[in-house]
Computed example of a mutant assay.
Amino acid sequence: MTLQLLASFFLFFCLPLIFLILSKAYSAATANSNKKLLPKSYPLIGSYLDVAANTDRRIQWLSDIVLISPANTYTLHRFLGNRNVITANPAVVQHILKTRFPLYQKGHAFQEALRDFLGNGIFNTNGDNWKFQRQVASHEFNTRSLRKFVENVVETELNDRLIPILAAAVAQNQVLDFQDILQRFAFDNICRIAFGFDPEYLSQPLGQSKFAKAFDDATEISSRRSSSYALPLIWKVQKLLNMGSERRLREAVSEVREFAKNIVRDKKRELAEGTSPESADMLSRFLSSGHSDEDFVTDIVISFILAGKDTTSAALTWFFWLLSKNPEVEKKVVNEARESQSALFTMK
C-alpha cells in the first residue's frame, strides 16, 4: 500500500514538476539561443537543452561557443556523462591530426553509427587499415595523370553543363537555387572522378537522381546517428524494429551499395576484357593495382564521394555568398580571372 501511494505521488506530483522544470529550462535555452553564452550542464542530461534549442543552427552555435571559450576549446557534456571536445585552436588541431594522431582513435560508438553506410572505409577505420588506405589514396592523388583527369572532368562539367545553365538563367532573368546547382555540379564531378560514372545530375532538365537521393539520405541519417546527443539506444531500437529513419537508412544504404557494387563489377569486367573506354578514375586505379575485393573498393569509393561531394558544394556556395556581400573583392577576383585567362591564351 505504501509503495502504491509513493508511486501515485511520483506520477501525479513529481513528474509534472520535473516536466515543468525542464520546460522552463528549455524555454530559457531557446531565448538565449542567439546569445553567445556557454551552455549550461545538468545532471544526467548534460547540455541537451541548449543543444535542442540550437538544432537549426548547430554549426554556428558551436562556433560561437569555441570562440568565447578559453584556448578556443570547449567540452560539451552529453547524456550520462558522455562528452564531446570541440576546438578551434590550431595548436590543438595539429596535436590531434598530426603530432599525436595515432592516439586519437575513432571510438566504438562512432564506428558503429557509421558502419552501415561507410563500412570500413577511411573515415570509419583506424590503425593499419586507415594507414593503408591513406597511402594508396595519397599515391594516386599525387600522380600527374589523375590530376589531369580531374582537370578534364571539371572543365567538361563547367563548359557543357554549369555555364550553359547560368547563361540561360541570365538570359531569361531566372532565379536559381544556386546551392542546389552547385551540389549537382559537385556530385557529377566526384562520381566521375571516383567511379568513372556520370550521373548527369546537372543535365537539363534538372531532375532527381535515385542514387544521389539515396546517398544524401544515407549521409544525413548516419550523421544524425553519430552526432546524436541522445542515447544511441533510440536509433538501435528503431533499427531493430526497422522503423522511422532507420528504415529509410536501410533502404538508402542498400541502394547506394548495390549501385556501387554493380559499377565495381562492370568496371572489373571491362578491365579484364580491355574494353574500358577510360581507366583514369579512382576505381579503375584501385582495381588495376590489384585491390579487387568488392567490399573493400566499394567502401573506399563511397568514402571518396562523401569526401568530395558536400565539401566542394558547401565551399563553393559560401564562396559565392561571400563575393555577393563584398563587391570590392568580387571585382578583384574577376580581374584576376581575366588576367589568368589572357595569360593562358597568350601561352597557347
Score class of each variant (00 low, 15 high):
residue 106 K to P: 09
residue 16 P to A: 07
residue 177 D to I: 11
residue 190 I to R: 03
residue 236 K to D: 11
residue 321 W to H: 12
residue 132 F to K: 10
residue 116 D to P: 03
residue 13 F to D: 12
residue 289 S to F: 04
residue 159 N to G: 09
residue 184 R to A: 11
residue 150 V to L: 06
residue 341 Q to R: 14
residue 209 S to Q: 03
residue 200 E to S: 01
residue 243 M to S: 04
residue 151 E to D: 12
residue 226 S to V: 15
residue 76 L to W: 04
residue 13 F to P: 09
residue 312 T to P: 04
residue 11 L to V: 14
residue 268 K to Q: 11
residue 160 D to E: 14
residue 73 T to W: 05
residue 108 H to I: 13
residue 238 Q to D: 01
residue 111 Q to H: 13
residue 249 L to M: 12
residue 296 F to Y: 10
residue 57 R to K: 08
residue 279 S to V: 15
residue 72 N to Y: 02
residue 183 Q to V: 14
residue 185 F to Y: 15
residue 106 K to Y: 12
residue 177 D to K: 10
residue 327 P to E: 03
residue 3 L to K: 04
residue 289 S to G: 06
residue 124 N to Y: 02
residue 90 P to V: 10
residue 317 T to P: 05
residue 348 K to G: 10
residue 172 Q to P: 00
residue 218 A to F: 07
residue 325 K to D: 05
residue 20 L to N: 07
residue 221 I to S: 03
residue 242 N to M: 00
residue 52 A to P: 00
residue 324 S to P: 01
residue 335 N to S: 11
residue 233 L to I: 15
residue 64 D to N: 13
residue 242 N to W: 00
residue 85 V to G: 09
residue 229 Y to F: 13
residue 299 D to E: 08
residue 32 N to G: 08
residue 155 E to Q: 14
residue 3 L to F: 10
residue 22 L to A: 05
residue 247 R to V: 05
residue 232 P to D: 07
residue 268 K to G: 02
residue 328 E to P: 00
residue 345 F to Q: 13
residue 323 L to Q: 02
residue 6 L to V: 11
residue 55 T to W: 04
residue 62 L to G: 02
